[in-house]
């Protein structure tokens, strides 16, 4: 990057370090932080939407819909995450390609699953082999978001389901007494009041999600933990301009600081949110706020 970096073997001390920290691999490392933050920013709302849908379905008076909601929650919560990240993603990917295969391939006589091989015609590949690397990354990222959202959505659904049950029955009855329809009761009374009950559970999920991002590497995305390992691993002098020993401990320390700082920021934000949501609620927190304000 800098001009004086042309011959690293002649450098020492801080100049060496400034060159070392601006190599191409390090920029990939810095970018991967953004990838992780972006994944979190996209996944959290999507997972919440999945959770909301799941909780609503589970509460539905229609029995089949309720079964679907409860089945989703039970199935995902009962199966180890790693199975989803290894098996589900491959199944999802093959499912998409198989569906496309049925539409775009001319020759459908060959079996798609042949022993351990999965084979569709080149036109049915998603993304196509010829498409640029950015589409391959975008596709991997989208499947990652979907998988994370599916897994965390089930946990969020259970939290929201519990929170909806926790809203005092008297509140809903009062709304009904005013003549509101069930939908109005749900929208105007139940949902605004349930968040304060859901927040502790949701904040747990958020913190677990932050730390679950290293699973990204299983999905073919190079995240911060992958790059910390790659950069920290010992480099021999033959082919590497910046040879060094096993430096993984320093890179993992940097990750530790990042994760701790991120957790702290999240905690501060969540504490504020709890305070805000407790306003005017018939809970202990709400009551304390009322007294303090009076």
């Amino acid at each position: 990057m800098f001009e004086f970096c042309a011959d690293p073997s002649q450098l020492s001390g801080l100049t060496w370090l400034s060159c070392y920290l601006t190599t191409g691999t390090h920029f990939n490392f810095y970018w991967s932080f953004l990838t992780v933050l972006m994944l979190l920013a996209v996944t959290a709302p999507v997972a919440l939407a999945f959770g909301f849908g799941g909780a609503m379905a589970a509460r539905s008076p229609l029995l089949p819909v309720s079964w679907i909601g409860k089945g989703y929650i039970a199935a995902v919560r009962g199966v180890p995450d790693i199975v989803y990240f290894l098996f589900f993603v491959i199944a999802l990917d093959q499912g998409i390609e198989w569906t496309k295969h049925l539409f775009v391939c001319e020759d459908l006589s060959q079996p798609v699953w042949n022993g351990t091989e999965f084979r569709v015609c080149p036109e049915a590949k998603v993304p196509l082999a010829a498409s640029s690397a950015i589409w391959h990354s975008a596709y991997a990222f989208a499947t990652a978001v979907f998988t994370f959202a599916l897994v965390f959505g089930a946990f969020a659904a259970n939290v929201l389901y519990g929170a909806m049950q926790a809203v005092p029955r008297a509140q809903l009855e009062t709304a009904e007494a005013y003549g509101m329809t069930p939908r109005q009761v749900f929208r105007r009374v139940l949902v605004p009041q349930m968040w304060v009950f859901a927040l502790p559970g949701l904040s747990n999920l958020w913190l677990i999600l932050i730390k679950a991002t290293p699973l990204l590497f299983l999905l073919g995305i190079q995240d911060i933990v992958y790059w910390a390992r790659e950069l920290g691993s010992a480099k021999t002098s033959g082919n590497n301009p910046y040879p060094h020993g096993d430096w993984r401990v320093f890179y993992f320390l940097a990750l530790l600081v990042f994760y701790l700082a991120f957790t702290r920021v999240s905690e501060v934000f969540l504490a504020r949110l709890t305070r805000r949501l407790s306003h005017g609620q018939a809970t202990l927190g709400g009551e304390q706020l009322r007294k303090a304000g009076a």
Binding site: T23, T25, F27, K235, G238, N240
Partner: peptide
């Protein structure tokens, strides 16, 4: 390395 690895300078 040296079969296949990440180039330290370019990534």
């Amino acid at each position: 390395e040296p079969y296949n690895y990440i180039d330290q300078a370019t990534g």
